[in-house]
Design a protein around this nucleic acid. Structure first.
Lengths: 145, 145
DNA sequence: ATATAAATGCAAATCATTTGCAATTAATAA
DNA sequence: TTATTAATTGCAAATGATTTGCATTTATAT
C-alpha cells in the first residue's frame, strides 16, 4: 500500500503519525496470513526497527479500535492474531492437524440472522464463525475422507 | 442427576471415582449457565469442599477430554467457561451491552457444511459460532431496534 | 492386603497482555 | 520558528488465567 494511503488512515483515525504505526500497518497490509503481536515485533526487529513489545501492543490496540486492522481471537490460540482490515467479511477454516488457517470469503448466515431478528428478542449485530476440520494436505497425509 | 449416572460417566471414561469429580460434574449439571474454573472453585468452597484450584483445572481438563463437559472459549473472555455436556448441538448469543450469554438450540450451518464438503478440499468436521448483539433487556434499556 | 498408576496439594513457573511512570515526540497555536 | 499540550513511547513491574514439578495420598486391580 502506498505510504500516503496509510498516512490518510492514521489521520482519519485522529492518531499521531509515528513511524511505528506506518510500519505496522504496512507490514500487516503485506502479510498474507494472520500475525501475532510478537510475530510483528520480531518482523520489525528483522527490519532494524526497534520498538518495545508493549508499544506494539498499544499500537495494535489503537489500530484495532479504529478498524484499520482486525484482532482475531481463535479458540485455543492463547495469543490474539491480527490482520489488515480489507473491509471484506470473512471467516476461517482451521485445520485440526496442522493448524493452518484458511480464509473463506463467503458467509452462510445472512438469512439466518434476518430470521432471528424477525422472531427473537435478541438483536444480532454481528457474529463470528470458525470451522474446524482438515486441510487438503492433512487429508491426504492422514488419509481422511 | 442421579449420583449413579455420574459414577457411570466417570467409569466409562476410565477415570478414578473421586469425590471431587462427582461434585464438579454434579455442580455443572445443575448450573443453568456457564461457569469458570474459579466460579466452580468458589462454589465448592461454599459447599465446604476444599479443593486446590490447580486440581479444579486438572479435573475440568480430564472431564473435557472425555466429553463429559464442554469447555467454551468466548471472544474477549480471558477465562474458559464450562458447561455440562448435554449432547445437544448449540451456539451462543452474547449481549454486547450486559454480556449475558443466551443459548440457541438451532444451527444454520448443516447445509453449508455439506456444500463445502462437496466443493472444497477442506473437510469440515465441526464449527463454532458466536452471535453478538443486544438482548431483550438491553434493547429496551438502550432503545435499540 | 499389596502394588501401581492416577490424583492431589502446594508452591512456583509460564506467558500473553497490561499498566504506572517518567521521558520523548507530534500536532497545534502563537 | 518556538512554545504548549496531549499523545506516544520505553522500561520495568504487575496481572491473571492456566500449567507444572514434585512429594504425598488415594483408588483400583491383583
Amino acid at each position: 500500500m502506498k505510504k500516503t494511503n496509510i498516512l490518510k488512515k492514521i489521520e482519519n483515525a485522529g492518531l499521531k503519525k509515528t513511524k511505528y504505526r506506518v510500519n505496522i500497518i504496512d507490514l500487516l497490509e503485506k502479510a498474507d496470513g494472520l500475525l501475532s503481536a510478537s510475530d510483528i515485533h520480531q518482523l520489525l526487529i528483522d527490519n532494524d526497527i526497534q520498538m518495545d513489545l508493549s508499544t506494539v501492543y498499544r499500537t495494535l490496540e489503537k489500530l484495532t479500535e479504529n478498524n484499520i486492522i482486525n484482532r482475531i481471537e481463535l479458540e485455543k490460540e492463547k495469543q490474539s492474531l491480527y490482520e489488515y482490515n480489507r473491509e471484506k467479511h470473512h471467516h476461517f477454516m482451521i485445520c485440526k492437524s496442522c493448524n493452518k488457517i484458511e480464509t473463506i470469503y463467503d458467509c452462510p448466515l445472512t438469512k439466518y440472522e434476518e430470521d432471528i431478528k424477525a422472531h427473537s428478542d435478541f438483536l444480532i449485530t454481528g457474529h463470528k464463525i470458525e470451522f474446524y476440520g482438515y486441510c487438503k494436505n492433512c487429508r491426504k497425509r492422514l488419509k481422511i475422507n
